[in-house]
Computed example of a mutant assay.
Amino acid sequence: MAGLATPHPSARRIHRILRGLAPAAIVALGATSCATGTDAVAQGGSFDFVSPGGQTEIFYDPPETRGSIGTLAGPNLMKEGEHVSLDDYAGQVVVINLWGQWCAPCRAEADDLETSYEATRDLGVQFLGINVRDPQRDKAQDFVVDNQVTYPSIYDPPMRTLAALGGNYPTSVIPSTLVLDRQHRVAGVFLKALLADDLTPVIERVAAE
């Protein structure tokens, strides 16, 4: 059945348990009065998230069983007046990270995400952040500068873009990370803060497919 989460043998071998990091921050969903980021857009795709047994690392294999996320686009956090879209990265592996500057685990993983990005970008890999629940844009921008994050983020305080991530995706878990293959199908999902040693081997495996 397409979309079912089946841990890949190689994925199991690279699995490591994170130590010393706080659990993912849980944010309450609901109505928001934030008026910024309203031009962020999303449309559903064929991906339907399934997390058997409450796992925090889920891999979707073989590749032909993977679902694709929907249209994903929104304002560029660091370049006001510009937009960024998943469609900008056709043919590339894309790592999508949901984050907020208010989120302690997001701060903990920022260096590791940047390390993984630098280690894999020459393989045809792009990272794309989605900044959520940050009504003060300047604070989110300060996070990017302070943590020397070089990849772009969509600025989406009301979390409108997350509708593209598929039915049942747990958008209340921040941070979380999706690894998309070159056809932008979901190859893996992490529902926790990450170390570079956890993420980089997964990206390299998907990039080599």
Rank of each mutant, 00 (worst) to 15 (best):
D48V: 15
L4G: 06
P170T: 01
G188E: 10
D122F: 05
C34R: 08
G45M: 07
T115V: 10
A163W: 02
L199A: 04
I174P: 08
A187H: 10
A110L: 09
A207L: 11
G20V: 01
K139Q: 14
L4F: 10
T56H: 12
Y169D: 02
Q92L: 13
D48A: 15
N97S: 12
D122W: 03
T115I: 09
S172P: 00
H83Y: 06
R121V: 13
V84D: 01
L162H: 08
L72R: 00
A163F: 11
V95W: 10
A25H: 05
I26H: 15
T32D: 10
P52Q: 05
I96F: 04
A11D: 15
Q148R: 15
P23Q: 11
N131F: 01
H8E: 14
E114N: 06
Q92F: 00
P175M: 13
R121D: 02
V125I: 00
N131L: 00
A110S: 13
L72C: 01
R185Q: 10
N131D: 12
L195V: 04
S172V: 06
I130H: 04
A187D: 02
P201H: 11
P63I: 11
R121M: 13
S51D: 10
D122G: 11
L4P: 07
W99V: 03
A22V: 05
S172Q: 14
G129E: 08
Y151S: 03
V41G: 02
P105H: 08
P157C: 04
D197H: 05
I174L: 14
L123F: 00
P7H: 05
C103G: 03
Q148L: 11
L162R: 07
E80P: 06
R66P: 03
V27N: 05
P170D: 04
A42F: 02
V144W: 15
A110D: 03
V95T: 09
V41L: 05
L21P: 06
T36C: 12
L162A: 04
G188L: 03
D142H: 09
A28Q: 12
G45I: 02
R137D: 05
R205T: 14
R16H: 10
G44N: 01
S85Q: 00
G70W: 00
A187F: 07
L191F: 08
T38Q: 13
D87S: 14
E57Y: 12
G124M: 01
V84R: 02
V132R: 04
T36A: 15
I130G: 01
P63L: 12
G188N: 06
N76M: 07
G30Y: 02
G37R: 03
A207Q: 12
L113H: 12
A35D: 10
E80F: 07
D48Y: 10
Y169Q: 04
V206K: 07
G44A: 12
R12L: 15
I174R: 08
L195Q: 13
S153Y: 09
S10V: 15
G3W: 04
V93K: 03
R16G: 05
V93S: 05
S46W: 03
K139T: 13
A42L: 00
L29P: 02
E109R: 07
V179H: 02
D197V: 11
D48L: 11
T200D: 05
K139Y: 14
P23M: 08
V145Y: 11
A35C: 07
G166E: 02
V202L: 09
